[in-house]
């Protein structure tokens, strides 16, 4: 194992999966099957239990039953997305199709899996989702974050969102990621500080700095004593070129 590997693994932990289903037997079975494969599995029997867990831990994947008493799967997904948007949410349902399933996909669920679950399909789906590059967006403009989330999510990136440096720090400490998109101007400081932190904690991660002022960004990059960004991006963001940059950086 190289030093770089060690560094990476200092952040990365066991892969965490949250199973939410009101059927105790299916919770037990998924714990057995996923646990046997080496995942760390937590379970919740309803939406409130699930939210309490999500507040404490960042899950890589959540398997959520669509039809539950109280908060249903779709509403739960929406709330989890607000707390931890990088979690890959797979909705499970015993209904073949239907409007709710479509709504779940529209809201950004990773996949809908019908019950009875086909594990030869589900397990590669989970593993495949976990190998997709993770991106964090740090910007205080919530609309921009939501738009970028949707655009990147549609291209199968896992996307975490932070609106200030504290949020961003929590994300960086919690999980490995491939790319950080950082706004130069943040509520409690500037993006170059965050850039420094990222490079220190996750040397493999790439960083893209974003700013509305070309001159300001250029000055900041020049003035910064620490590491330089891997790419820069000016607002209004040209989505096509951003996607190309993201693709190139994740491949490199």
């Amino acid at each position: 194992m190289t030093l770089q590997d060690l560094n990476t693994h200092a952040v990365s932990t066991m892969r965490r999966i949250l199973v939410v289903d009101d059927e105790p037997d299916i919770r037990a079975n998924l714990t057995d099957i996923l646990g046997d494969l080496g995942y760390e599995v937590d379970t919740a029997g309803n939406g409130n239990e699930a939210l309490a867990l999500v507040e404490r831990k960042a899950y890589d994947v959540a398997l959520i039953d669509l039809k539950m008493p109280g908060i249903d799967g779709l509403e739960l997904y929406r709330r989890i997305k607000k707390i931890h948007s990088a979690t890959v949410v797979i909705i499970t349902t015993a209904y073949a199709g239907g409007d709710t399933a479509r709504a779940a996909m529209a809201a950004g669920a990773w996949e809908i899996v019908s019950k009875p679950m086909d594990f030869n399909m589900l397990l590669p789906l989970i593993e495949g989702a976990l190998t997709q590059p993770a991106i964090i967006i740090v910007d205080d403009d919530t609309d921009l974050c939501d738009n970028l989330w949707s655009i990147l999510h549609d291209r199968r990136y896992r996307v975490g969102i932070a609106h200030d440096i504290d949020d961003a720090q929590a994300l960086i400490e919690a999980r490995d990621f491939s790319i950080a998109l950082i706004d130069l101007k943040l509520p409690q400081g500037d993006g170059t500080q965050l850039l420094q932190l990222i490079k220190a904690r996750q040397p493999d991660a790439r960083a893209i700095l974003i700013s509305g002022h070309r001159a300001e960004l250029d000055d900041a990059v020049r003035a910064a004593t620490g590491p330089s960004p891997d790419a820069v991006c000016y607002k209004p963001i040209d989505i096509e070129s951003l996607l190309t940059t993201v693709r190139d950086l994740t491949r490199a």
């Binding site: 059927e23 037997d25 299916i26 079975n29 998924l30 057995d32 099957i33 046997d36 015993a94 019908s114 019950k115 009875p116 679950m117 086909d118 594990f119």
Partner: peptide
């Protein structure tokens, strides 16, 4: 499908 789901996952395990 709910009970089938449990049965199928137990069989898989």
């Amino acid at each position: 499908r709910q009970p089938l789901n449990v049965i199928r996952s137990s069989v898989y395990y």
